[in-house]
Each structure stands twice: as structure tokens, then as C-alpha cells.
């Protein structure tokens, strides 16, 4: 019994993580992430008079938001994010299946995975600015189309348009879609694919009834890593939209530039609500499906 009391004083949680460490991490998390967010929410319910915050709760900022035509910006942002996400899906699913199951060659896999990470070495702006030269009036695409005789005039909607923004977003958001999908497909046992074939299934049937349902968690993660950050990304739309394609993130920036802090805060809270809402819906949908297939 004497030893028992000794054991109690030296209690270590079953996970082997000290409670002190956990509270330290939680404290830092609160300080760095949650507190500024709460500040943001607080500001969105205040108003500015003569560039001074007035400390009484009001919905003025949200009213301004509604009346200032930012719905259009919201719809455009969501539309661009949705289109790019769909394009990423169409490209990434076959690519991930090929990389995980289609090729047995280890060098091919290593080189491909490395090639997918290399873009991260360069800043997003540097990678994006290249598209200006490619899509511009005198760029290679317009020259090629003209020399082929397909068009007489250079296409002016190639650059500084929603089209340009979509093209520019495809590259940077491809790896975050591919990686979780690749991992999910890798986890599908070869024996399952052999069994499906053995039972008479065509590759398309196997894809639809085995690969896709089992890769669903990867699909969900890929969606979260592409669609949601794209809503908050101002870089590509600004560089390739040329002021024509205003998205929510740039809207926040321009509000900040005119020192309209409360409306900027309200818009940020609004964006945050969209993202959290989407993530929550996705989590609920996936959880239902994943639970059924968990082992």
C-alpha cells in the first residue's frame, strides 16, 4: 500500500504526454490564434466615427457589407474556388490513382512526388507572374493561335480575367489535392483491386465501387486543403485578375487600405463563417460514410 501512494504522486497520463505541456500548447494556441480571432469578431460589431472606434455594439458594419455590393464578390469568390476545385478533382483523381496503383516503379514515384513539392520552394507570386507572359496579348498562346490562323486578333480575355485567375490557381492548388488522395489510394490493398478484377469488374467498375468509396477521406481532405484556402487567397486573383476580378480576400485588403477596420473585420468574419460552415458540412457528410467502412 505504501508503494501505491508513491505511484499516485508520479502519475503520468496514459498517452505519456505531460498535462503541463498540453496546457502550454493550448495556452499558446489561445494567445496566437483564438485571441486575434475573437478581436476580429469584436471589431465587426463596433463602428468607426472619424477613424475612431466607438465602443458600443452595432450591426452597422454588417449593414454596410450588405449595401456595398459585396455579395457579388462573395459569389465570384465561391464560383472561382468551386470551378478550380472541380478541375483539380478531375486532374488529381486519375493522377493519384496512377501514382499509387498504376506504376510499380519506385524511381518514377519518388521523382513524381518530388516534382510535386518543388513548386513550394518558390513564392506564389513568383510562380504566378509567369502566367502574365504566357497569357498576355503578345504571349506564346496568342501567337500560336494567330500563326495557326485560328484567330485574327489576339484574345484579350486570356489575361486579367476570371479565366486567367482560374488557370493561375490550378497549379498551386494541385499538390494539396493530390497528396491526401494519393495517400488514401495507397492505403487500398492490392488484393482488393485483384479481387474486384477477379470477380469480373472492369477498371471503371472497380474505380466507381472500390477505389472511389475507399478514397473518400482523401477526397475530403483534398477539398479542405484546396477549396477553403482558395477562398482566402488574394495573390493569384490580384496578379492575374488585374483589378477586374475582385475576390473576398482582396476586398478585405482594400477595406484595410481605406482604414475601414470594422467592415474589414465583418467581411473577414463572414469569410470565416463560410469556411467553417463548409468544413463542418464536409466533416459531417464524410464521418457518416467513413464510419461505416472503418475497420
Amino acid at each position: 500500500m505504501a508503494t501505491a501512494s508513491g505511484t499516485f504522486t508520479r502519475f503520468i497520463s496514459p498517452s505519456g504526454v505531460s498535462p503541463l505541456g498540453v496546457s502550454a500548447v493550448l495556452g499558446a494556441w489561445m494567445l496566437i490564434v483564438i485571441l486575434p480571432l475573437l478581436g476580429l469578431v469584436l471589431w465587426s460589431f463596433l463602428k468607426l466615427e472619424n477613424f475612431q472606434l466607438v465602443w458600443e455594439p452595432t450591426l452597422q458594419a454588417y449593414r454596410d457589407l450588405l449595401s456595398s455590393g459585396r455579395w457579388e464578390v462573395t459569389v465570384r469568390t465561391l464560383r472561382i474556388a468551386a470551378i478550380v476545385t472541380l478541375i483539380e478533382l478531375a486532374l488529381a483523381v486519375p493522377f493519384a490513382v496512377w501514382l499509387a496503383k498504376g506504376t510499380r516503379s519506385v524511381p518514377v514515384k519518388v521523382i513524381t512526388l518530388a516534382a510535386l513539392t518543388i513548386p513550394f520552394f518558390l513564392s506564389l507570386s513568383a510562380r504566378t507572374i509567369v502566367w502574365r507572359a504566357v497569357l498576355g496579348l503578345n504571349g506564346p498562346i496568342n501567337s500560336a493561335l494567330m500563326s495557326l490562323g485560328l484567330i485574327d486578333q489576339p484574345l484579350d480575355w486570356l489575361l486579367f480575367s476570371e479565366f486567367a485567375v482560374i488557370v493561375g490557381l490550378i497549379g498551386p492548388y494541385f499538390p494539396p489535392m493530390v497528396f491526401p488522395l494519393y495517400l488514401a489510394v495507397t492505403l487500398i490493398g492490392d488484393e482488393l483491386l485483384a479481387a474486384s478484377k477477379d470477380l469480373g469488374a472492369s477498371p471503371a467498375f472497380t474505380f466507381r465501387h472500390v477505389i472511389l468509396p475507399l478514397a473518400l477521406p482523401g477526397l475530403g481532405a483534398g477539398f479542405i486543403f484546396t477549396f477553403i484556402p482558395m477562398i482566402g487567397d488574394p495573390v493569384v486573383p490580384e496578379l492575374l485578375g488585374g483589378g477586374q476580378v475582385v475576390v473576398l480576400a482582396s476586398s478585405v485588403k482594400s477595406l484595410l487600405q481605406v482604414l475601414n477596420y470594422t467592415v474589414a473585420a465583418a467581411l473577414s468574419v463572414f469569410m470565416l463563417a463560410i469556411m467553417v460552415g463548409l468544413a463542418a458540412i464536409l466533416t459531417l457528410v464524410l464521418r457518416g460514410r467513413v464510419r461505416r467502412q472503418s475497420t
Binding site: S196, G200, V210, Q293
Partner: peptide, 20 residues
């Protein structure tokens, strides 16, 4: 003739059952 067009069927070592 590939497996999906052969009138034979395999019971795999680890069964290959579809977990979902």
C-alpha cells in the same frame, strides 16, 4: 484473356474483402 473475363474465381490469402 484478363481475369475479369475468365470463368474462374479466387479466394485470396487475406480474403480481399471490401471493407466498405
Amino acid at each position: 484473356v484478363p481475369a475479369n473475363h475468365r470463368n474462374v474465381s479466387t479466394v485470396f490469402q487475406h480474403y480481399g474483402l471490401f471493407p466498405h
